[in-house]
C-alpha cells in the first residue's frame, strides 16, 4: 500500500553561494503513511535536502512541490514540521515545555498569537502522546536529552502538518528512548503522515523505516528498505567510509553452513547482514520495535 504523493522532488540541484554543489539532479517522490530514512556520509547533502523541502535554499535547478504547492506556500498552510538537532537550540532560553509546544500552534493563531481553547487542547494532547505531560511546566534546560527531543516532536505534532522532518533525532538518545520514539513514528505514519528521518544509525534503518534514500550528492538508491538497503548500495553510497566486519561461516559454525555475518557501521547502531556472501539478508539486532501493519 502506498499513500498519496506528498513531496515531489524533480531534478533538484542546489549550489551554495560559495560555488559548492551540495545536491545534483535529485528525483524523489515521497508518500503519506511512510517512514523514510535518509542515509549518507557527513556532507552528503542530507541537511541540504531538508532545507530545500523547507524552501530555505533556492534550487539552482529543478523544483520541490509539496501537495502540488511550492515550499513557501506549503509552509503557510502549516504542512511541514521540523524537529531540529539538539545542538541547534539554546537550552538556557527562558521558555517552559508547554511554551515550546505552543510555538507549533502559532501558524494557526491570529495576529497577536493569542492561544484559543483548541490550541491549548492540541498542546496537551501532543504532550500526552510523547509522554511529557508531567513536565509541561519545566524550563526546557531542565530536561534530559531524550526528553528534550520528545518536546520538539510534540511541537511538530501540535503543529498538525502531515509532513515531519527530523534531522538526526537519535543522536545522544538511549536505546529505550529511541525505541519509544520509533513506536511513536510508526503510529504517526499509520495515521497518514510522512516522516522523513536522517540518521547515521544504519542498524536502526531496517528496524523502523519503510523506505530509504541513500544519498551522496546524488540519490544513490531509493526504494523500499527490503530491496534498497543492501550491502551493495551501501558500499556505493559510503565508499570506504563504513566500518566493515565480516565473520565468515567457519568462524560462526562448526558445520558446513557457508553463511557468514557482516556488520556494517557508520556511527552507532550497526547493521547486521547474515547469509551467504552476496545473498545476505538484513537481520534485525533488536526486534522490540512494533512491526507495521500495512
Amino acid at each position: 500500500m502506498t499513500g498519496q504523493d506528498v513531496i515531489k522532488i524533480t531534478d533538484l540541484s542546489v549550489t551554495y553561494s560559495n560555488g559548492h554543489c551540495a545536491l545534483d539532479g535529485v528525483n524523489i517522490t515521497l508518500h503519506t503513511g511512510t517512514i523514510c530514512g535518509l542515509v549518507g556520509v557527513n556532507g552528503a547533502g542530507k541537511s541540504t535536502l531538508f532545507k530545500s523541502i523547507m524552501g530555505f535554499v533556492k534550487p539552482s535547478q529543478g523544483s520541490v512541490k509539496i501537495h502540488g504547492d511550492i515550499a513557501q506556500k506549503a509552509l503557510k498552510k502549516n504542512r511541514v514540521a521540523y524537529v531540529p538537532q539538539t545542538e541547534e537550540v539554546d537550552w538556557n532560553f527562558p521558555v517552559l515545555v508547554k511554551d515550546v509546544v505552543m510555538m507549533g500552534r502559532y501558524g494557526h493563531m491570529g495576529f497577536m498569537r493569542i492561544a484559543s481553547k483548541a490550541d491549548h487542547v492540541a498542546v496537551e494532547n501532543a504532550l500526552e502522546r510523547v509522554g511529557m505531560r508531567a513536565y509541561e511546566n519545566r524550563q526546557i534546560g531542565e530536561l534530559s536529552g531524550g526528553q528534550k527531543k520528545r518536546v520538539f516532536v510534540a511541537r511538530a505534532l501540535a503543529q498538525g502538518g502531515d509532513i515531519i522532518l527530523l534531522d538526526e533525532p537519535f543522536t545522544g538518545v538511549d536505546i529505550k528512548t529511541e525505541d519509544s520514539l520509533i513506536a511513536l513514528f510508526h503510529d504517526l505514519a499509520n495515521e497518514g503522515r510522512l516522516i522523513l528521518v536522517s540518521t547515521h544509525n544504519l542498524g536502526s534503518v531496517p528496524h523502523f523505516c519503510d523506505e530509504v534514500i541513500l544519498i551522496n550528492k546524488t540519490v544513490q538508491a531509493y526504494g523500499p528498505v527490503e530491496t534498497t538497503f543492501t550491502q551493495e548500495n551501501l558500499a556505493k553510497t559510503f565508499g570506504g567510509m563504513l566500518r566493515h566486519h565480516r565473520l565468515i561461516g567457519d568462524d560462526l559454525h562448526d558445520d558446513e553452513d557457508p553463511r557468514g555475518l557482516t556488520v556494517l557501521t557508520d556511527d552507532e547502531r550497526p547493521l547486521v547482514l547474515y547469509g551467504e556472501e552476496g545473498g545476505e539478508q538484513i537481520r534485525k539486532l533488536n526486534k522490540k520495535g512494533r512491526k507495521r501493519t500495512t
Binding site: 523547507m54 524552501g55 503557510k76 521540523y82 531540529p84 541547534e88 501558524g107
Partner: peptide, 9 residues
C-alpha cells in the same frame, strides 16, 4: 528558533 519560525511561514 528561527528555523521553526521559517517553517511555520
Amino acid at each position: 528558533d528561527p528555523v521553526h519560525a521559517g517553517v511555520i511561514g
